[in-house]
Design a binder for these strands. Structure first.
Lengths: 121, 121, 121, 121
DNA sequence: GTGGTCTAGACCACA
DNA sequence: GTGGTCTAGACCACG
């Protein structure tokens, strides 16, 4: 449970959880078959409500990243490494399309975006 | 009033307004001194409540982009072109920092991000 | 017409006029019998609406500081110097009562207020 | 919720709320972490609309005096006592500059102002 | 349960 | 005519 949540963030807590767990799975940090902690324990560790954790786990299951086995726990789903790459790219592309449309709305050219990215990275 | 709002969007309407008007001012499409349409007229055109428009206008005033004069109307504030560039860059940098941290959380290198951006742009 | 108005101020324009003209009369800068400029001329000089000036003149008349003679103009009223002092003190006291209640609401003692005043004056 | 509002006042209700709550926080009457009553309950107690309370709370948040956490409530922000003093002094100084410029416009000297303040306090 | 957003409709002060 | 404030009531997302 190497995640950090922030009440001050504009993002809802459950979504912060989803994003961080998703990223860890897609980067291979959480391997297939890995058993996530029970929601009550996770809630305690993170200092959030059980309901919040449950909502995050549900969304992870919906997106196919974990499987919930009633009475046993929640396990990271089995993926081929190709499949992982595909999912990861889809998520990133979707986000990136939003970002670029934002930059374009300010009249930024691709070259300007590249310049700024270099500085930040 | 060249703005488009979407009820389906996850962003609140008033924020969509703020972003689009801000962008237009910072791109120079709305010049200093330009008088925005009265809030009631804008509300009619956009098919939203007067209060929603007002909330957006208030936020624009708070960020210094417009001045509202009771009984007269709301006017685009006076800027030096340097000042415009500075504000625009601050807004874009702030957004870009969020974006890059998202990409990084998936383990993307700068070069990979560049590649993807080129395809999308 | 040695007055300055500000659209950006939180005070309405007509009230800014009333306060500045009142102060000038009570300080003796505008003498009894002095003829104020016609409202149209004053409006032009100040860059405000005729209606706004009229409203200010009306309020000055209501408080007894000027007399309007139809067809001739608006004249500063006749006062004994005692009367002037009395009116001035009333206006200042009224204002000062508001100010002190504000300071008190922050728990400031009189000594602290004195200290701060010395620095500002 | 030790606040009193006046419909007759020239100040808008939401601003009366802001000023009174601000003062209480800056005086230390409301401690860091204190949870303000839910906006709906506060609205009931005060006999005003929920929206009016919300507008006040929003302004308090904007000025950094409280933090609102969706679904949990609104909490007095964490301050060092130095920070509190600094903010308090800024607010008072700003107000006092307005006051003194008013006094000066009537030709009052500092000593006269002191005299009058002593009587009132 | 909390706050967040939006609506429709009203009244007022200001210009 | 303009913006400024307030109301009552509704629906949603979050916890």
């Amino acid at each position: 449970m190497n995640v950090s949540i922030s009440n001050a963030s504009e993002k809802p807590i459950y979504q912060q959880l989803v994003e961080q767990i998703s990223a860890q799975i897609l980067k291979g940090e959480l391997e297939s078959g890995y058993c996530l902690p029970p929601i009550r324990q996770a809630a305690l560790e993170l200092g959030v409500s059980v309901i919040t954790v449950k909502k995050a786990w549900e969304e992870l299951e919906r997106s196919g990243l974990i499987n919930t086995v009633t009475g046993k726990g929640c396990f990271v789903a089995e993926f081929s490494s190709d499949k992982i790459l595909q999912i990861r790219n889809e998520m990133i592309l979707k986000q990136m399309e939003n970002d670029t449309s934002y930059y374009k709305s300010f009249g930024l050219t691709m070259d300007e975006v590249m310049e700024l990215l270099k500085k930040i990275y």
